[in-house]
């Protein structure tokens, strides 16, 4: 399987079919004498920024830690064994509400969007 082509940048949905992000990065384990093995997929702005270069990666990581605290200083990881299905979307056996991925959306809802009438 050509991993970069078939996995990277695909849509990720959680077990309730909620769109939670794209496969922004892959974490592979290098093994002696064997091909590398994927252990996790990464999501989030830090991973994306790292793809642009090491400096943007450091900036965004610093910013994320400032805004979101320690919990957001590292990219969000989903273990490879949680991947259930690879189709148009990649389905993972995770409930996004139990992760930190949507913390910023929750913050937006609680502090801004939810306060506007009619939301």
């Amino acid at each position: 399987m050509d991993l970069l082509r078939d996995l990277l940048d695909k849509q990720v949905v959680d077990r309730r079919q909620v769109k939670i992000g794209k496969v922004d990065g892959l974490v592979a384990e290098l093994r002696h004498g064997k091909p590398p093995r994927i252990v996790a997929v990464e999501l989030g702005s830090i991973t994306l920024a790292r793809r642009l270069g090491s400096r943007p990666g450091r900036w965004v990581a610093w910013l994320a830690a400032r805004l979101g605290g320690e919990r957001h200083a590292e990219p969000h990881r989903i273990a490879w064994k949680k991947v259930r299905n690879i189709g148009v979307d990649i389905e993972v056996d995770v409930d996004v509400r139990r992760t930190a991925i949507f913390d910023w959306q929750d913050w937006l809802r609680d502090h801004i969007i939810g306060r506007i009438p009619g939301a």
Binding site: Q11, V12, V18, K19, I20, G21, K22, L43, W104, Q105, D106, L108, R109, I112, I113, G114, I116, G118, A119
Partner: peptide
């Protein structure tokens, strides 16, 4: 582009981004 939930038919509080 970033893989968030999208759709005009959802209520704003379900789709803050």
């Amino acid at each position: 582009g970033f893989g968030w939930t999208w759709g005009e038919d959802r209520k704003p509080r379900e789709d803050p981004g």
